[in-house]
């Protein structure tokens, strides 16, 4: 088993009497992009919250490199697992540079501010996602796609081996969405483990190495996109009859009404 492997074993979670996750088990393969698919309210966000250490009252075990994440301090965990939220509007207008610099906090002493080393990491992260030219712009004054890239750069500045993304393309237009996903896949190719939720099976076919399909809080299928996302699975996930089309080695979903 790899050193940085994120494993989820028999994970169950409930809010009161309402079961959200039932006996979920899977491994996030190192250096690959794992897409989590499922209808709204299926428990994707809760699963992510557990994996990020934001929820701890679950049954089962989540381990990173064999170590239960419940036993890792928030600061240590932040150095290994980073989170990319959906692009948002905070109350204050930080520069893109400062926003990304915040990602280095887990490696900065409690009473210190970031120093040269963190500034250098921030520069590199901005460069890797190709937004170094935005560094002095206000975060609230850039486009949704640029904000999403800023948040991805921030996760890179965290220097974690695993990055968890909550629907990174949800608020983006067609072009920006694809550009962001392409960027994310390139990062996975460089060795990052990426776990992201998506509502678009086409995106999973285009970019994901592995797919975790969830129905009703449980794992419906886990494997490569072609193995898991067949026509009955699409219908089970979304209640839509669909036909898969294979053109030039790319699979896409054609809904049937």
């Amino acid at each position: 088993m790899s050193e940085n492997m994120l494993s989820v074993r028999n994970l169950s979670f409930s809010y009161g009497t309402h079961d959200v996750l039932r006996d979920v088990s899977f491994d996030a393969p190192v250096g690959q992009m794992l897409a989590v698919l499922g209808p709204n309210g299926v428990g994707k966000s809760t699963l992510f919250r557990c994996m990020l250490g934001l929820e701890t009252r679950y049954r089962g075990e989540i381990t990173l490199g064999g170590k239960p994440i419940r036993s890792i301090s928030p600061r240590q965990l932040a150095q290994q697992i980073a989170y990319v939220p959906q692009s948002h509007s905070p109350s204050f207008n930080y520069s893109v540079f400062d926003m990304v610099l915040m990602g280095t906090t887990a490696r900065v002493g409690l009473l210190n501010s970031p120093r040269e080393a963190q500034i250098a990491v921030t520069e590199q992260s901005l460069e890797r996602v190709g937004i170094l030219h935005l560094r002095d712009r206000g975060y609230l004054r850039i486009s949704g796609g640029e904000r999403q890239l800023t948040l991805i750069a921030r996760a890179l500045a965290q220097q974690a081996s695993v990055v968890i993304m909550d629907e990174p393309t949800a608020s983006l237009d067609y072009g920006n969405g694809l550009r962001v996903l392409k960027q994310v896949r390139d990062l996975a190719r460089e060795g990052l483990t990426v776990v992201q939720s998506t509502h678009n099976p086409d995106h999973a076919f285009m970019f994901a190495d592995q797919v975790l399909a969830m129905v009703d809080g449980a794992v419906a299928a886990f494997g490569t996109p072609d193995e898991t996302l067949d026509e009955p699975m699409i219908e089970a996930l979304y209640g839509i009859r669909a036909k898969l089309r294979h053109v030039d080695g790319v699979t896409s979903v054609q809904p049937i009404f």
Partner: peptide, 8 residues
């Protein structure tokens, strides 16, 4: 949540 995932 964001701040916590950054180690604060």
């Amino acid at each position: 949540d964001e701040a916590r995932t950054m180690g604060v």
